[in-house]
Design a protein around this nucleic acid. Structure first.
Lengths: 406, 406
DNA sequence: GACCGAGTTGGTAAGCTCAACTAACAAACA
DNA sequence: TGTTTGTTAGTTGAGCTTACCAACTCGGTC
């Protein structure tokens, strides 16, 4: 029989009363502080561990780039031997290449530098969340946009709209100049984890098996997710955010994506982030398309804002309109900030509307309505990724799904 | 060299255009849909996998109880051999025992039943969130309370209050009749992951290293967390909730704990759930101790509610007071429900206040202010765990930390 | 200035350990 | 005889340690 593992793991000295009276022969297998899931649900085999370590090596090369095997070993905590083995595997798959020897003069054998072969694969990303057009692009592994294509919606809904997605995908695939790693799609509405668009009112979609349809047509991995969820991934990967963040996407509708502990939040019915139809404030508001009064969208959606701005005659009036919209956003977000203790909120949408009075008013309102000591360092800013945020987020989803990297 | 892993993992048929033109030699190592963390951060060794599987076996026995090795193997997906090995280890540690043979008549060798040795260890749990008293209990592994102790706070704050915690702990340890698995504490205020109470205004605590102090005095594993976070764990373990949930704790203050995807949310600065000082509504409100007007606590905290009820003369008036409080809670929670797409909200606090008009008004308000199609099946209810919820949550933290089970 | 040994760093090869697996089998039942 | 349980024996896979060679710098020596 094996030696018992009856070893105390507590870091305390053995002077306490318990030490004398009651041995505690249990090792900590899932420290609470680690934030690990509470209930283990599936078995783990050594090969799963290998997959994880493989991604770890890939991740290190992806973010740092141009490193030797020894560098990667130091960075990951794995041994040089193990890293060599994993790298051999990754090179055989064409994902990693040797890029020559390290410059500069130092003792020891010169290092052979490695990097992800950033030209080896390309990604197709699509944004279905625009009002009148489906936009798509071919991107490289770094998320750089190599070529673009778009297709006007021209009022298409239902199956017609699906057909346009397929057409656009085909066009993008033809534009690609390297093997396609996968196809990522950011769709409006509620999307489940298997790539079914459960509901997308603007497109007239209900239970559209988008992922399956694309997979049947194109023999490539497909990832479909909500547009705001895609956007928050883009912001996470290409921005410099670290903590828990929320991305609020303002357009014809208003939606949000949440990234908590580095993991996207989908919600119990995949409808997380659907804040557009939450009523804001206790003093009425305009009637919303959903039938309620004073939904966030009635305050913030771009058509409504544009209409209100049309009616203004002076810059001061326009400023007040924008400030009010910002305040309403702050009112809606305050409880969320309080409940989640967010580090960062990013806005995505037309900068001419969002930047300036609106975002300033939102931040003021948030500060006035939450505890400064918890949320004083909350950052609120506009995305730097502009209109391509969903596209690029869709690419991140593919990279993440296929390589375990982001 | 090893065989290349250039195997297509897409489930699509090989008829798509990509199948012909561009092989996609990448396996999915971290499927997006799995909800796994985006960026792998630490290496994983085989022994980590073993720890996981060990917890998996323990979890199966913990929840199902009275199972044979073969049952566990079927339940977990591990082989009988592996389960046998793990069980041998767990029995050597005294965590698992054989409880005899299975009754009933069926073909084959009779099964030897196993179970967690539910009397092998006891847990000390404490609730520091009550207004005038520290309460504690000794619990068994099932979370059943075996004995209780409490110590009046008598206005103690700061170091005096810490001393009372130590005294109460000592008393509880003496009350225990089996080895102590660990000591769990639910404290008010903001608690970081290493068990430091960063701030707890009511107790006059700032940066109190509670875990460390207890660990030095008692040679046992200590877990300290926010009271509402502990409570939500209790509700998760002993209630029958499944999806993402939020527990709102109403007392002298108002706080919340969130459990998303089975994992507690701590927030970027460990202040998740601190919703008591979020301003509710846009029509003023009473002045709060924090200086703002109309914080959730001014509407909902029990002293305020009691005071308002004192002023009422008729049941109808009292009812209106409670309904207003409920509405305010609904107003505050609506954006959170929208953003997180919660499955369940549980209230903890005095039933005579919360149950009835208040909770009804909260649910009505939530329904009126969010999209029914996303949140129509949102459950809102009172906890069934009563006053012991934090105590029992503290025990769950210990069990989770030490055994990886809950 | 050329040379040579010592020290340093990078990468690989051989063999070990651990953990889960498959295959096979004995025990105990209908 | 067939079924189910649990164990024994041996295999596979993954990362580890140990040991080694390769290729460089540095500093002393001829």
């Amino acid at each position: 029989m094996k030696e018992s593992r009856a070893v105390r793991e507590s870091s305390a000295d053995s002077t306490g009363v318990l030490a004398a009276s009651s041995p505690i022969p249990v090792r900590s297998s899932a420290p609470f502080a680690d934030g690990r899931a509470l209930r283990p649900s599936t078995k783990v085999l050594p090969e799963h561990a290998r997959g994880h370590n493989r991604s770890l090596v890939l991740q290190t090369l992806y973010t740092a780039g141009q490193q030797s095997r020894a560098d990667v070993a130091r960075g990951t905590g794995l041994t040089r031997v193990t890293v060599s083995d994993l790298v051999t595997e990754l090179m055989a798959e064409g994902l990693v290449i040797e890029t020559g020897q390290r410059e500069g003069t130092r003792p020891g054998k010169p290092a052979t530098l490695l990097d992800i072969d950033r030209g080896a694969f390309q990604i197709v990303g699509m944004d279905l969340s625009q009002y009148s057009v489906f936009r798509g692009a071919v991107l490289d592994l770094d998320g750089k946009i190599l070529s673009r294509a778009e297709i006007p919606l021209a009022g298409s809904i239902g199956a017609d709209a699906v057909e346009k997605v397929l057409t656009l995908t085909e066009r993008l695939v033809e534009l690609s100049t390297a093997p396609i790693l996968g196809i990522g799609i950011g769709s409006p509405g509620v999307v489940d984890l298997s790539g079914v668009v459960l509901t997308a009112p603007n497109l007239g979609w209900t239970d559209v098996h988008l992922r399956q349809m694309l997979a049947e047509r194109f023999g490539a991995p497909i990832v479909v997710a909500n547009d705001a969820n895609a956007a928050v991934l883009a912001e996470h990967s290409f921005g410099d955010a670290n903590g828990d963040m929320m991305l609020v996407k303002v357009g014809h509708g208003v939606g949000a994506g949440l990234l908590l502990g580095g993991t996207p939040l989908f919600g119990s019915h995949f409808a997380a982030g659907e804040i557009g139809h939450v009523v804001v404030g206790t003093d009425g508001g305009a009637e919303c398309s959903c039938g309620k009064f004073g939904c966030l969208e009635t305050w913030l959606a771009t058509p409504r804002l544009d209409a209100k701005l049309e009616l203004t005659t002076t810059p001061t009036e326009a400023r007040m309109v924008l400030r009010e919209a910002g305040q309403r956003l702050g009112i809606a977000l305050a409880p969320v900030v309080g409940a989640l203790n967010l580090a960062e909120i990013v806005l995505s949408g037309p900068p001419e509307l969002l930047d300036g009075p609106l975002i300033e008013a939102t931040l003021e309102t948030l500060r006035n309505r939450t505890m400064a000591e918890f949320h004083g360092d909350l950052a609120l800013r506009l995305t730097t990724l502009g209109d391509d945020i969903v596209l690029r987020g869709a690419a991140v989803m593919v990279i993440s799904a296929q390589l375990g990297v982001s």
